[in-house]
Amino acid sequence: MSDASADDRRAEREDRDRPAFAGQNRVRSVKERAIEWLLFGCAALSVVVTLAIIATLLFDAIDFFTRVSPVAFFTGTNWSPKIDQTYGVLPLLTNTLAVTALSALVAVPVGTASAAYLSEYASDRVRSILKPALEVLAGIPTVVYGFFALVYLTPALRAVGLPVSTFNLLSASIMVGVMIIPMVSSLSEDAMSAVPDSLRQGAYGLGATKFEVTTGVVIPAAVSGIFSSFILALSRAIGETMIVVVAGGMSPKLIPSLFESSQPMTAAMVQLASSDLAGDGAAYQALFAIGLTLFVITFSMNVVSNVVAARYREEYR
């Protein structure tokens, strides 16, 4: 190739209409910056709202604690804001724990088993039907679950011979458990599906059955994700409100009874909020004290979940 033809080609290249790359970047950089700020604003909004909520909770709760001592609130065994003006949160707390524990008894085994089925056993066709069905379960409004518990589950429990009253802890807790099954199964299934296939092959190659591969290799390898799904689902159970309001009753007992009326923290808040209380009364402000307590509980659970997930996560290449 001669130098002449190379020069020709360069001349030709320079003739082409190409955008200039200097001297006109001002408009573009302003536009870029504006977009960046807009996006930042949206991202910041949720943080601001969260902080505002925490601040509201804190201010009113602090106000409340100037009227009712924190010791009386956290150690009191009687919750009777309207009649006795006593604000012992312990019965509400024990009821919340009871609902959470019972719902975990339902959701953890059923959710984990569904996840194992979907991830390890189901054919593509079955999975394509079951998975959306489970996700629909997550989309049902919780008030519908509440009415289902009240109208069908409680009579069904009575029909099998359990001495349940119209509003009872057992029925509400089972329903909360059913509600959080999709959370457990969906997140656990993601964790199990992420286990590399080479591990399954290794176990099959040693003569493991499908069940042995699932329980001995896949679940242990996915344990951090499975555990996170439990914690997230339980946080959800702790915060669940409508089901326990509709089906669980309104009388908190320090030692909750399965078959009788109960009242976890969320339900107590609904009751307080829906009664005509003076805006500056202690009963009204008790709402925020309970809210703050709930917030601290679920927040710590999420922290625990993150720590555990980070500690037990296995890195695969």
Partner: peptide
């Protein structure tokens, strides 16, 4: 096949130790 694989071991292309 499960019993068969207990008598015929296998080693794979990528080392695949269990997370144990």
């Amino acid at each position: 096949p499960v019993a068969l694989r207990r008598r015929i071991g296998m080693v794979f292309q990528q080392p695949n130790p269990f997370p144990k």
